[in-house]
């Protein structure tokens, strides 16, 4: 009888919907939405050292973490650098990711396939490399001693005469540190744009490209009037997606700061600040981290909604074609 009812439910329209949506929505609810709300709740508790039993029911000073955060932001001698770095880093890296991804996609699209595959694989490596090893590679690349790879190349070319401390030299700050941050994160981000744009370009009907060529279009004209307009939507998507990703990026910065490659404060973004607050041994202050993350999330939410509106959400949601 129960099986009979289940069967009739599953053949109903509502049943179909439940069948298709339930697994994804359940997972998103359990591992995304509930933790999200819970971490806002945690920001009202003095949770630290991972000790839930001890602190999670303590709501005696619910706004304490926000007060401390506010206090920190208004009193910490270097917090201004963190805020500025977050803004500049997000903005610059976003441009690098989108423009770089676009350039790479165009180049690999226009060149012959055997080169193209090699470069696409190469540019995907940063995404595939374990973060610790990836950080290590760039640590030695940008290291300020004469052993740093960049320095040793520039020295032997005679461009510079003594090693440059790219990430910490006060004459180069903050741009030296930012350059490294943007470069290292940009390389990881570029591959996302590259793959999306490249596949979008390949899905442009061949006839369009041929027609343009037959009409005598130069490569620049082809790019400008045919290729770019047809992937406009993808550019918007990548921009939004990367913007939200960058706001929350910390992993590829964390070790570079810890190892002293870049200035501690000109190299710390808000997301890294959250991570450090929650996870370094000096401060396993997870209530405070949750508060800082909540602020981050609020910013992300606003930015996300604005960009969704700008890019025209309606356009995205073509009406379903599966209705009987």
């Amino acid at each position: 009888m129960g099986a009979e009812r289940l069967r009739s439910f599953l053949t109903s329209r509502r049943g179909h919907l439940a069948f298709f949506l339930a697994p994804a929505l359940t997972l998103i609810t359990i591992f995304y939405l509930v933790p999200l709300i819970l971490s806002i709740y945690i920001s009202l508790t003095p949770l630290k050292y991972w000790q839930l039993n001890r602190y999670l029911t303590d709501l005696s000073h619910p706004l304490e973490n926000y007060y401390r955060l506010f206090y920190l932001v208004t009193h910490h001698p270097d917090i201004g650098k963190v805020v500025i770095t977050t803004i500049v880093f997000t903005g610059l890296t976003l441009v690098v990711n989108v423009v770089g991804g676009l350039l790479l996609a165009l180049a690999t699209y226009l060149m012959e396939e055997r080169f193209s595959l090699f470069y696409r694989t190469l540019w995907l490596l940063p995404r595939m490399t374990p973060i610790a090893v990836y950080s290590l590679l760039w640590y030695y690349f940008f290291h300020g001693s004469r052993f740093g790879i960049l320095n040793s190349i520039l020295l032997s070319l005679g461009v510079i005469h003594k090693p440059v401390w790219w990430g910490v030299d006060e004459k180069l700050l903050p741009w030296g540190a930012w350059m490294i941050l943007v470069y290292v994160n940009g390389l990881v981000g570029v591959s996302f744009g590259m793959i999306i744009f490249y596949s979008a370009l390949r899905s442009i009907p061949r006839e369009q490209v041929m027609a343009a060529r037959v009409d005598g279009a130069t490569t620049t004209q082809l790019i400008r009037y045919v290729l770019i307009p047809s992937i406009k939507w993808h550019i918007v998507f990548v921009t939004v997606w990367e913007l939200l990703s960058l706001l929350t990026t910390y992993a590829h910065i964390f070790l570079l700061v810890e190892w002293g490659l870049i200035d501690k404060w000109w190299g710390t973004t808000w997301a890294l600040f959250v991570f450090n607050t929650a996870f370094t041994a000096q401060a396993l202050d997870q209530g405070l981290a949750a508060a800082a993350a909540t602020v981050l999330v609020a910013i992300g939410l606003v930015l996300g909604l604005i960009t969704l509106k700008i890019m025209g959400f309606k356009e995205l949601m073509i009406e379903p074609r599966g209705e009987l």
Binding site: Y67, R68, Y71, L72, H75, H76, P77, I79
Partner: peptide, 11 residues
């Protein structure tokens, strides 16, 4: 600077 950093963290 040290004093300022210490004071920035109420705890």
């Amino acid at each position: 600077y040290i004093i300022a950093q210490v004071k920035a963290d109420p705890d």
